[in-house]
Design a protein around this nucleic acid. Sequence first.
DNA 1: GTTATTGTTCAAAAAATAAGAACTATAAGT
DNA 2: ACTTATAGTTCTTATTTTTTGAACAATAAC
Lengths: 302, 302
Amino acid sequence: MNQIEDMQTFVRIVEAGSITKAAEQLNTVKSAVSRRLSQLEKRLGVTLLTRSTRAHTLTEQGKSYYQHSLRIIEEVADIEAGLTQQNYALSGSIRIAAPLVFGLEHLSQALLAFNERHPEIVFDVDFDDRKVDLVEGGFDLAIRIAKLEDSNLIARQISSTRMVLCASPAYLKTQGTPTTPQQLSTRHKKLQYYRSLENWHFVEDNGQSVNIKIPTALTSNNGSFLLECAIKGTGLLYSPDFICHQAIKDGKLTIILKKYLANPTIPIYVLYPQNRHQSHKIRHLIDFLIEYYGDTPSWLID
Amino acid sequence: MNQIEDMQTFVRIVEAGSITKAAEQLNTVKSAVSRRLSQLEKRLGVTLLTRSTRAHTLTEQGKSYYQHSLRIIEEVADIEAGLTQQNYALSGSIRIAAPLVFGLEHLSQALLAFNERHPEIVFDVDFDDRKVDLVEGGFDLAIRIAKLEDSNLIARQISSTRMVLCASPAYLKTQGTPTTPQQLSTRHKKLQYYRSLENWHFVEDNGQSVNIKIPTALTSNNGSFLLECAIKGTGLLYSPDFICHQAIKDGKLTIILKKYLANPTIPIYVLYPQNRHQSHKIRHLIDFLIEYYGDTPSWLID
DNA sequence: GTTATTGTTCAAAAAATAAGAACTATAAGT
DNA sequence: ACTTATAGTTCTTATTTTTTGAACAATAAC
C-alpha cells in the first residue's frame, strides 16, 4: 500500500485523460496503471473514475480525491525538499558543549564572529568541564581539550594549547624562582585543577624524565579562579596558555621551567556524532573554527 | 519508495523511543525498522535521528520531519476516510438522464419525494428522449423505457408501462370504433412518435399475429404533444399508459382493441455504469424508486 | 568482568509490483 | 456494414522491494 504513489498515479490519469497516456508519462505500462487504479478503488471502497472504453468521468469522490491528492503530493515534496534545504541552510540552532574557560574566553569570540557572518544561526552553548554525552545531551558538537580516547565520535583538531608553569613575580620573589624541576620540591605549593594530574612531568637536561609532586595550596574546578589565585601569589599554576596568556603578557605572571616541561602541547578537538549526513552548517562552523584559531591562536605566547 | 509508510515508521520510532519498541508496535522486526530508517535518511540525504546504542536524539531535521509527518499521516487518513463517508453519506449530487414525458410527469414526483427524506441530495436531471452515453455525460443513472439492448451498463427494473391504443370519443364517432385490427386499415390515421415503429403488431382471435400499417396524421418527438393531438381528435394514439392514463380516466380518450395488442408491456429500467463500488446514495435511490412505483404505479389503468 | 539490551548488517524468503501478451469493447475510418 | 485501430482489463511471468531471522557489534547495567 503506497498511498503517495497511488495519488501520483491517479493525478496523472486524471490529467493525462487516459490510462494509456498516464502510463507513458509515468514510464510504465498501461496494465500497471490500470491495476493500480483498480487496487486503489478497491482499497478505498469507492469508485473514483467511471470508465468505458474511451471515456472517463470523475465521480464526486474522484474529484475530491484528485484535489486532495494534488495538495498532499505537493506538501510531501515540500517537506522532503525542505529538510535538504534546512540541511544546507546556514540557519537554525547549533548546540555546543564546551569547557568552561576555553568556552567563555575563546570559543565565545569565535562564535560571535561566526554569527556576524551567519546571523540566522542561533548558538546554544553549554559550558561545563565535565565530559558530556553528545548524543544523550542532544549536542551537535563538543570542544574537548585532551588527548583523544576511543569513542564512536568523530574528532577534528581545531587548534592546540601549550601547558605552562607560572607564578606571580611577588610569589617568586618570596619563594625563589626555581631553575630546575628539582628545586620545586622545596618551599613551593601548587594551585590544583581538580581534573588534572597530581604529578608534574619534566624532562631534565640529561634527558631523564622525572615526576614531581609538590603540596597543594588550593584545588578548584574553575581555571579562572586558579588564575586569580596565581596572580595573587597563592602558588604555582600549571595551566594551558589559553587561560594564563594575558596575565603573562601583562607581567602579572612569570613562566618558569619552560624548557623542562614534558609533552606541553595538548590538542584542541571538536567532536561530533557519527552522522551519516552531516549538516552543512555544522561542517561550515568546524571549518570556520579551524580557520579562526589557525596555527597562531590568540593565546600563543611568543 | 513509500513516503507515508516511512513517515509512519519514523513517527513510531520517535514516539516509542527506540527502534526495537517501534518494531514491536508495528508488528515487525527491528531489522526492518532499522533498515527503513536508514533508507529514509539516505533518500532524504539528512540525519533525522542521532543514535547510539541506547540513546536517541532528534536532529533539527528530525523534529521537523516528525511534526510534518504527524500532520500528513493524519491528513491522508482523513482524506481516505472522508471518501468512504462520502460514499455512505446521503448527500452530494446525483445526475440523472430521463426520458422527457416520464421524467417530467412521474420521475420528478418520485425525486421530490426522495428529496423530502434526504434534503442533502441535489438532483441534476437531464430530460431527453435520446439515448445518452452515461459515462461520457457523467450521469450516475438513466431511466430507459424499452427492452434492453446489450451494453456494459447495469440495469434494474423499477416498474413497467403498458402500451394502449386510443382515440378521442369524437374521433371514434366520426371514423367509427374499430373492433378488430383489420378494421384499422380503413379510414384511420395515426399519431406517430418519431422513435417508435411504423407498424403495429396485433394477435387476432385465432392466435394469428398480424402487422398493420396505417397512414400517419402527424409525427413528433414529444409524447405530450401527440397526446394533445389525440384528445383533439387528430388520430389514433399508440402510447404508453404513463402518458395517456389521465386523459383516459377523464374520458377524453377511449381505449380500443385492448385485447388484440401483442407485447403491450414494456419494462422501465434504471441503468447505471458498472462501477466496482456503487455509491450508497445511488443504491438507496434505486431502491426508493422501485418502492415508490411498486406493482401498481399511478399510471396503471384498471 | 559479565550479562543484557540495542542497533546494524547480511543472506534468504516472501510479498508487492511491473511487464508483456492475450483479450474485450468500441470508436473511427472506409 | 465491415475493417482497423485504440483503450482498458486480466492473466501469467519477471523483477523489484521488503521482511525475516540470525549473527554481530557496541555499550549500559549489574
